[in-house]
């Protein structure tokens, strides 16, 4: 399938900070690419370049057949963008927000209004549609912002951390909406800090750190390399370790690792919470006194640990963030 988004050797510097450091990336038409990376990795910078908001210092990018630097106007006609922070006009109602975007896409008066109502319906905002966006919850603003990106039914969509800051329920709701979009053939580039989100939505995942890609693969490949979910159990008495190990062996899908010092056992499993519950019943039946127990799913940190041998370096991005806020302050 043809690549509808194609970036080659993108470099973007902010003073001394190198936000993108020679990034290559392709998104085949009709697929979802998840761009996974910690805070400060360069996700927003990349999306901004692809959406023609920023010019790269080096490298080229093509979106829907047009060069983002030479033909930005043509690119803008074919993309939808929902930025990292919901950019809705809070003094306008939900309807007015969408109608305004429709008019700016040069839809006629009626077409623009009809589309606004239709989107409010799709995004479960019909009832709140005539209230000002000021009264909306975080989740509602996010949905309105996303709806704004879809007004012109663009073939390519960029979503920058669409669910960050949302409660789990709104997050799952938004995932559903995004899946529906993709099912209708939209090409999507989505950035996220959550491995789980990439797993839920993306066909392919690119992991970025300090402005370059450090891994590329399907979510399944990524998870396999990192390890799937596991039960972590800590016993109160180290004497219980052998019997605890015997119980976990019945559930483990691989080798169990034991930390004698801490009294902790880690067992890879399949089956999630039900499996954990069954295991707990057996611990209780055997009267083993547990100090701590939990189900762990791999996170971005685990990905980084596996890929780079260290967790994502927040320190570096914090320092950079500091510089950024200084610059912003004048």
């Amino acid at each position: 399938m043809a690549d509808i988004v194609e970036a080659k050797g993108l470099v973007k510097r902010y003073g001394k900070v190198v936000a993108l450091d020679g990034l290559d990336l392709t998104v085949p038409q009709g697929t979802v690419l998840g761009l996974l990376g910690p805070n400060g990795a360069g996700k927003t910078t990349l999306v901004s370049i692809l959406a023609t908001l920023l010019q790269p210092d080096e490298g080229t990018a093509n979106v829907a057949g047009f060069d983002v630097c030479n033909d930005p106007e043509e690119v803008r006609k074919r993309i939808g963008l929902s930025g990292q922070f919901a950019a809705v006009d809070e003094h306008l109602t939900g309807f007015e927000n969408l109608d305004m975007v429709g008019r700016l896409y040069r839809k006629g008066r009626k077409a623009s209004r009809d589309r606004a109502r239709e989107l409010l319906e799709v995004f479960d905002l019909a009832e709140a549609g005539d209230r000002t966006a000021k009264t909306y919850s975080g989740g509602m603003r996010r949905r309105l912002d996303l709806a704004g990106a879809l007004v012109a039914e663009p073939p390519v969509l960029f979503l920058d951390e669409p669910t960050s800051g949302l409660d789990p329920r709104s997050r799952t709701g938004l995932w559903g909406v995004i899946r529906d979009l993709v099912a209708r053939g939209t090409t999507l580039l989505l950035t996220t800090q959550y491995l789980e989100e990439a797993d839920q939505l993306a066909d392919d995942v690119v992991v970025i750190d300090h402005g370059h890609a450090i891994a590329h693969g399907t979510p399944a490949e990524l998870k396999t390399s990192v390890g799937g979910e596991r039960i972590e159990v800590t016993v109160r008495e180290t004497g219980d370790l052998p019997s605890a190990q015997t119980i976990l062996t019945g559930f483990a899908s691989g080798e169990i690792s034991i930390d004698e010092q801490r009294g902790t056992l880690i067992a890879p499993i399949a089956g999630g919470v039900p499996t954990l519950t069954k295991a707990l019943h057996e611990f209780e039946a055997s009267k083993i006194d547990l100090f701590d127990v939990g189900l762990r799913r791999p996170t971005l940190d685990d990905v980084f640990l596996t890929l780079t041998g260290h967790v994502a370096e927040e320190a570096v991005s914090e320092e950079a963030d500091g510089q950024k806020s200084e610059e912003m302050a004048g």
Partner: peptide, 13 residues
């Protein structure tokens, strides 16, 4: 500050 300009700048207006 509110990101609304970015939204406008990504539109073909």
């Amino acid at each position: 500050q509110k990101g609304i300009i970015s939204r406008f700048r990504a539109l073909p207006m």
